[in-house]
């Protein structure tokens, strides 16, 4: 069954069209990579999927688990198992990481008809999950992302994903600015969560991350359109030849 179907999606920001007819279908349990040069619309796609109101969908459709995603508020999407790992995680002074995550987890659980998580259980859960992404324990009590290094912010995104256990995870340039240790920690976190049911869309500029998170399918996004799809070898080709060839064909 398709977990995500994007049909002829057109998106504008302040009157400028960024996505010009994106088509993409993801089966449950698969890892899809979306690659493309800067300004091709990769992050726009991620933000639209998450429900950012600064992006206007002018036409097209997105079905998530068969439901009309565009009709859902951002929080409903999250409660239905959608997760976006932000390219630029937001700092929230005055709110501790733990408190934030507990509020998020309880919102998801309530939606699923489950009891709110017990304080002790929650503490054990976050400690265990922090370990899997090698996130320093001391960051748990700190305000969300405040004063975190670039690598810590990205690990914190993967950590949140590990706690919330979503069904579809979109990772928007999670690899950008990461050194090799942080990159492998992030990839380990993702790979541990691959269970044949959970689906991932990995958005990246470089092939590097895909050595660690091996995709089932690769899509090339250029000038707001998917210009080519293929298997993991497509990523390697891109690494060798670059995006220039596609750019010309698209122009």
């Amino acid at each position: 069954m398709a977990v995500l179907e994007i049909k002829d999606l057109h998106v504008s920001v302040e009157g400028t069209e960024i996505l010009s007819g994106v088509n993409l279908s993801m089966e449950e349990g698969k890892v899809h990579a979306v690659m493309g040069p800067n300004g091709s619309g990769k992050s726009t796609l991620a933000k639209v999927l998450a429900g950012d109101e600064n992006y206007e969908v002018t036409s097209g459709q997105i079905l998530y688990k068969g439901q009309d995603l565009l009709e859902m508020a951002p929080e409903e999407r999250a409660r239905e198992g959608f997760f976006l790992g932000f390219q630029y995680p937001v700092e929230i002074p005055g709110v501790s990481n733990t408190y934030f995550l507990k509020a998020a987890l309880n919102a998801v659980r309530k939606h699923q008809g489950l009891q709110e998580v017990d304080a002790m259980e929650f503490l054990e859960l976050i400690k265990e999950r922090a370990k899997t992404v090698k996130l320093d324990d001391s960051l748990l009590q700190r305000p969300v992302n405040e004063g975190f290094s670039g690598g810590e912010k990205k690990r914190n995104e993967i950590f949140q994903m590990a706690v919330l256990e979503p069904e579809l995870c979109v990772l928007d340039e999670t690899d950008s600015g990461l050194d090799i240790d942080a990159l492998s920690a992030v990839a380990d976190g993702v790979n541990l969560m691959r269970d044949g049911k959970r689906s991932f869309m990995v958005i990246t500029h470089y092939q590097r991350l895909l050595n660690y998170i091996v995709p089932d399918e690769v899509h090339v996004l250029v000038n707001g359109r998917i210009v080519k799809s293929g298997d993991k070898h497509l990523a390697e080709e891109l690494e060798a030849s670059g995006y220039a060839a596609f750019d010309e064909s698209a122009a």
């Binding site: 998450a50 508020a73 951002p74 932000f86 919330l164």
Partner: peptide
């Protein structure tokens, strides 16, 4: 920040 919170399921 509000969008970030909502994207995690907070109303």
């Amino acid at each position: 920040a509000l969008f970030y919170l909502r994207s995690r399921g907070v109303s």
